[in-house]
Design a binder for these strands. Sequence first.
DNA 1: GTTATTGTTAGTCTAAGGGCTAACAATGTT
DNA 2: AACATTGTTAGCCCTTAGACTAACAATAAC
Lengths: 102, 102
Amino acid sequence: MTGDPFRALGHPIRRGVIERLAEGPTTVGEATRGFDVSKPTLSKHLRVLEEAGLITRVVDGRTHRLALNVEPLRDAGAWIDEQRGRWEGLFDAVQSFLEERR
Amino acid sequence: MTGDPFRALGHPIRRGVIERLAEGPTTVGEATRGFDVSKPTLSKHLRVLEEAGLITRVVDGRTHRLALNVEPLRDAGAWIDEQRGRWEGLFDAVQSFLEERR
DNA sequence: GTTATTGTTAGTCTAAGGGCTAACAATGTT
DNA sequence: AACATTGTTAGCCCTTAGACTAACAATAAC
């Protein structure tokens, strides 16, 4: 888990893979079907997701079964909610702040 | 808003700036204080955040006042929650999936 | 035992990311 | 008017990201 989950989520293809896996675990082939890039490129994207802890791989014969790993997603969501929550407790301050000073 | 919010959140310095702004709007100098990189580098990071719609800038004399913009944060959080929610409705399928097949 | 399928590894290429210094622009301060 | 402060722009450098092709490894199917 050397990778940063936020960074891993920073590429649309990787988010696309996450979306597919969110509907159920599946193989590499299925999880990456339709993205218009080469297989090696997709393989790299999967590795980034794996290193960030966002997906788990179980080798099953010649196919690799992928599953979503929600913990990092939960953490990322919690961070976002935390920042949002703090900010939203400050609307009065924001209002006065945004006013031009004379 | 040409930038991708997820990508913008992919750098620790940028997340750090978000964390500071979550505690209240402030100036560039304050929001970036303590990060051990040069001013131009920080300026670039701010631009990335701005282009992703995550922060708003109000020029006030020679200082620039920054404010957090929660909408993209909310969207990002919603996306994460959605994926997580879908996945968590599947635990039975996951269990059977993860078992080795003989 | 070939051949097909699934997926990764190795190596290369190019562009973008993230850093720096030097210089500037704009405003405040004295 | 001169200087200080706040912040950006311009230009450079180096590394990493993200793509490709070619080749391989492992298993399944025939």
